[in-house]
């Protein structure tokens, strides 16, 4: 296979409350490509702005060829990830807080590692604030 696999990541909702649950599903169309090394799903927050940027991963799961778990990857896969109380989504001027679910597929082609990343953004905030 030479083309990047088509990856879809869908969230059941885009607005979430602290300590809520992020539910959704992902699918790799046609299954993981030949030479797939890993499929990684994570839920994280990151900051953006003019200065140093931070990141926090609240959920991570990987299916790898090396340890044999890739063969057990359900495709499509569903997920339900508990969310923490903070940090809340924030659209500031100097700093912003983004929440996202991320799917990363890495595969080898002609001796080089390639990857495709699909992000789905959502917000985390108390009901009265959104």
């Amino acid at each position: 296979m030479t083309d990047a696999p088509e990856v879809r990541l869908e969230l059941a909702a885009r607005e979430h409350r602290p300590r809520g649950e992020l539910a959704g599903a992902f699918v790799i169309a046609g299954g993981p490509p030949d030479g797939t090394r890993s499929v990684e799903f994570s839920v994280l927050w990151r900051t953006s702005g003019k200065g140093t940027e931070d990141i926090g991963v609240v959920h991570y799961r990987a299916w790898k060829a090396d340890d044999g778990t890739l063969a057990a990857l359900p495709n499509p896969s569903t997920f339900a990830v508990p969310l923490p109380p903070t940090p809340w989504s924030y659209d500031g001027t100097l700093v912003k807080v983004h929440w996202l679910a991320r799917l990363r597929v890495r595969w080898e082609l002609l001796g080089r590692t390639r990857e495709v990343v699909e992000d789905a953004e959502f917000t985390l905030a108390p009901a009265a604030r959104s």
Partner: peptide
Amino acid sequence: MSRVGRAPRVNPFSTRF
């Protein structure tokens, strides 16, 4: 509208870019 809980708009001149 409060900036808290609002989906952040991407700034193309952010450090990450």
